[in-house]
Nucleic acid binder design. Structure first.
Lengths: 191, 191, 191, 191
DNA sequence: AATGAATGAGGATTCATTCAT
DNA sequence: GATGAATGAATCCTCATTCAT
């Protein structure tokens, strides 16, 4: 029973299914058929809406970034003052949802994809730039000129801890957050 | 004219070809045929020596870790005292060879692979444990009990910087090294 | 707002779009969707009007024959006497419109189609019979009993020249016409 | 039981199967799978040897031209003098094998293919040029300067009659040959 | 009248893997 | 030791066609 206005519903279902499927297999070796089946439709329809497997992946990545961005804004909403805001940004990065198996898988594959796919590379660049600019914005009042440099250090530390917790250590957002905070405090001391 | 004692030569050629091929395509979507052709032999022979594609990949990863380990030992060889040794470990991580396109690709794909392949996961665990234990060994004399905690921070920072330099920022081993050193110095101050 | 009396308009649009599309791709590998899009409607509507892809093709071929027939009648309209009428028939075959890229493509595909599609075969038979009977009608007064035989020769020459000019030589209706005329004159000499 | 030196055998089998398959369906809508099955192998092997469907088709066309060329040379072998040689060339064009259903189908599809495929167009050009040059060679002694023009007429007549006999009239190589001869004689009379 | 939604049935192509030689 | 031969099982993608609205 075909309905009207299905497009957004189908697209969303496909994006969710893509992330779930990547999470389950742990790789990008995911077939459009499986994604479509999980989303409750034929693979032909998936192609109809997205045009290609590539585009389905890109949409899924964009979705993950959107969710992440939403979390950052959410955490920032209640934070008062630069130090609290920095804390909020860090907290958003280690929010429990980020350690869902499927989200981890999507991020890692995102990294790999960025090597060969221009669209993915661009998206990843957007994420990096955004994190950096968020950090710089609140570091400036605290460390002045050293804001850029400090932001890069913190950003790298966040990424590194994320990967370690995601892949090897047990995921522990609180511990990760504490560790970044500690370094941040040290770096702020100087001034 | 089949030769005797070709096995190690063939295996090495295949491993090198695998890494080169992964580097070129930027993903694990690499065919055994292409690897074999690059290594100057038939794909059947590649299977003969390694048994399966999985195993070829694993061997390639092991090779990368071996090379990395060799570098660490090399840098450590001339270092005197804990602080100098820590420096050596850090320097080894950002050694120019690690930023070769193909090595980056291999590492990232290594991460992805670790999610679904037990062998790869184990190998990655070995790398992490070794880096940690190396760091701890030389941090203990400097920070005592806080050695473990500090090692994890430094290790994460190394990984995070590596990924950022590998993927987004221009690869700059010297800058990365300086950044880690700076944080390390801060963390050592306390004592 | 669906309109009434759209049927003939839609059908004509589809037929024109079909010919254009065949001309553009140079083959019968033309999708109903593309045809429909070119004709400004959905593929579902195309099916509604024609029932199947086959039938759309047949209609397009019929259209081409109709146009050709119209040209023949048009040229014949002003011709006086058998010799002039023969000339008119020949001229109609090499009329510029016949060398439009899309018409050439349609004709050739028509030939191919006739091998496997009964409807197309019948249509092609009609064309051949009509051309022959037109020629015979005006040859009879000139060559009597040899009219049939002569007609076949002229008809074949027309087809052969058409294909050659359409495919390999540059399309040159005037030259083709002259060549046929020349042969015709020779064949008429005898009497 | 795989053997060595299968390549030429497989290629030939595939070419024959392609022609047969085109003949059976009467169109180029022939699947590689069907061709391969008819040739007694998997479709994967067909791709292994030819690389693509396109290339299989081209090889089949080339084969048809080769066979045709062989016939021409064969007929020319016993012909003495220009007139007899012209006769031989004409006879080769209407040789019974050319009216095999599958050969007809291949030729017609060849024509269609030439519109969109550069390789096919080139091959067709070769055929046309060869026929023309063969004719010119033997017409020169008979009609001098008019050799080119006469050759084109005869060539077109051959093609036209071939198509008509192949598609509509019953295939009758003898009648076709007689008809061309007749026109040829007429055209030679002048001199 | 008109269409977006939906799909089943392929179709070309790729590839890891096996096997006889 | 080494390889060409061979394939089954996918995989992405396309398309004619149907249907509810």
């Amino acid at each position: 029973m075909p309905k009207v206005g299905m497009e957004p519903i189908r697209r969303e279902a496909l994006i969710k299914a893509t992330i779930a499927e990547i999470g389950e297999t742990g790789s990008l070796d995911v077939t459009v058929s499986k994604i479509a089946k999980r989303a409750g439709m034929s693979s032909a329809l998936a192609h109809h809406y997205f045009g290609s497997k590539e585009r389905i992946f890109l949409a899924a990545m964009r979705h993950i970034l959107t969710v992440y961005g939403r979390w950052v804004r959410c955490e920032l909403g209640t934070a008062k003052g630069p130090r609290a805001r920095l804390d909020a940004i860090i907290r958003a990065s280690f929010e429990a949802g980020n350690f869902e198996h499927e989200v981890i898988a999507a991020w890692l594959n995102f990294y790999v994809h960025a090597q060969s796919d221009a669209g993915a590379a661009r998206l990843l660049g957007v994420y990096h730039a955004r994190l950096r600019s968020n950090l710089v914005h609140d570091l400036r009042p605290l460390v002045g000129d050293r804001a850029g440099e400090t932001a890069e250090t913190i950003a790298a530390l966040i990424d590194g801890l994320y990967i370690r917790h995601a892949l090897v250590a047990p995921p522990d957002g609180v511990a990760a957050h504490a560790r970044v905070t500690r370094v941040l405090d040290k770096l702020l001391e100087d001034t």
